[in-house]
Design a protein around this nucleic acid. Structure first.
Lengths: 258, 258
DNA sequence: ATAAACTTTTTTGTCGACAATTTATTGACG
DNA sequence: CGTCAATAAATTGTCGACAAAAAAGTTTAT
């Protein structure tokens, strides 16, 4: 059971050191305490659960039993609880009072809303990055695209989804607006779940080279093209879901007889 | 110490019932349990602390000591802790490991980012609402604007800030995209803090009638005007901060000698 | 055999106690 | 008199135990 660094947590982390008002700047957390060898670190557990969800090892709707997780990670239930509430705030997990935690299952309505939000935000981020991208940043993006293409060649769908999300998130973080990057992180994670849930089994002719073309627009500082490509790209991804999206819920009988 | 319903929590609440997969739909939480008469309900405590922050009774930077709060609300420390982590996820409170919780103090950089984000999102929401606003919704908005004008007449700055935020949030929720409404809630709350921190003591000639004009655009289904007015409005608000915004941090000596 | 009522088991929610860390206070020394 | 170190107080972090609720299983009656 590998752990795999996933969708790096960079921007949206909980604790922001905050400048000290007095004179002595203490540089807190400079040395990580060892703790028990088993490793009951909230951050690590958070990452592993998130990774499992993104990589579809924990399917949407799956119940997450606290005690079970505590046993798996050799942690206390309180610690698991902490992680689950964080995941629920990030909308990756749904917390139902007195019933427990479940991997989120975004509805079709939510899916539409997520893409609507992304269409508002991401073209603007693409435009910003096209203006400011450094060679190092472009190299990093090239890396990601290469990894994605490789995964695609190997038909490793999970990795394609993950890397695609990471590409978009990286762009958001590079664009230089931490608030928007944080929001994009949420939207990107949700999108991973949405694709898992509603991806049409056929087709998938969409992103293929679109990430690469986007990258080229960045390299050439072509803001308009970058923004336009991003917009079209998002439309393509959403449309590749449309088939299932129209079909709505099949097993949800109640709503039919309302 | 009045409690005052504040920036209603509608959209972004923690527990979303989620449809039951089986047959029996249970409608959980239909009856609120009584608990101890003192009232140790997490939701209520959350609202009261948030209200205190928005209304500036808890100033930015103020330390929030768990045990103290627990005593005030007659609740356990664990419950306070739960509320504080929720507030920290909403960026209203900053949680510093081993040091405690503080009312957030957005930096000037963050302030700029918040407004940049709002400029991307809110004109689009205004456009949507202009297309779909019902008479009931317009009436509700009129109510808010009236209340705001009244508060302004009474020179009750706190209430003006609060009601102004509520106006924007209401628009976001009416626009029919729960995801964006949730994000706007965060941005609105942050904006309240930013205004408290960086408002220029003079001027304040900005919003005056702008909310009302925006409202008129909604009433006349004029999408373009609504979007344009929203954009200009945001610019005005941000510019009214600019004087202080340029001044940056005065007491932060460290950064000067880096 | 089915469905309701009851019992058992599992799982979540809450609290208080203890450990670890930070902050304030005191005292000693240059 | 101020600076540094040692001690005391206050505050946060973590855990296990118990209570409350839900789910599963069992019995009984129709």
């Amino acid at each position: 059971m590998k752990t795999r660094q996933i969708l790096q947590d960079g921007a949206g982390t909980e604790e922001r050191p905050q400048e000290n008002r007095g004179a002595k700047v203490v540089r807190l957390g400079q040395q990580r305490r060892a703790k028990a060898a088993v490793g009951a670190d909230a951050e690590a557990i958070y990452r592993r659960i998130l990774a499992a969800i993104i990589e579809h090892r924990l399917a949407p709707g799956r119940k997450l039993v606290e005690e079970r997780l505590a046993a798996v990670f050799g942690a206390s239930r309180a610690m698991i609880r902490q992680v689950l509430t964080r995941l629920s705030h990030e909308m990756v997990v749904t917390l139902v009072p007195n019933r427990g935690a479940f991997v989120a299952e975004p509805t079709v309505e939510e899916a539409r809303e997520v893409f609507e939000a992304r269409r508002l935000i991401e073209p603007a981020l693409a435009r910003k990055l096209a203006l400011s991208a450094t060679p190092a940043q472009l190299a990093r993006l090239r890396e990601l695209v290469a990894a994605e293409e490789k995964a695609r060649a190997q038909r490793d769908r999970q990795q394609v989804i993950r890397l695609s999300g990471e590409f978009h998130l990286e762009i958001a973080e590079m664009a230089g607006n931490a608030i928007l990057a944080r929001q994009m992180r949420e939207l990107t994670l949700l999108t991973c779940l949405i694709i898992i849930l509603y991806d049409s089994p056929v087709g998938r002719a969409c992103p293929e080279d679109e990430h690469r073309r986007l990258l080229e627009a960045f390299a050439q500082r072509d803001q308009d093209t970058a923004a336009a490509l991003m917009l079209h790209h998002l439309d393509h991804v959403e449309q590749s879901l449309d088939i299932s999206l129209a079909a709505q819920d099949d097993d949800d009988l109640e709503r039919i007889f309302s």
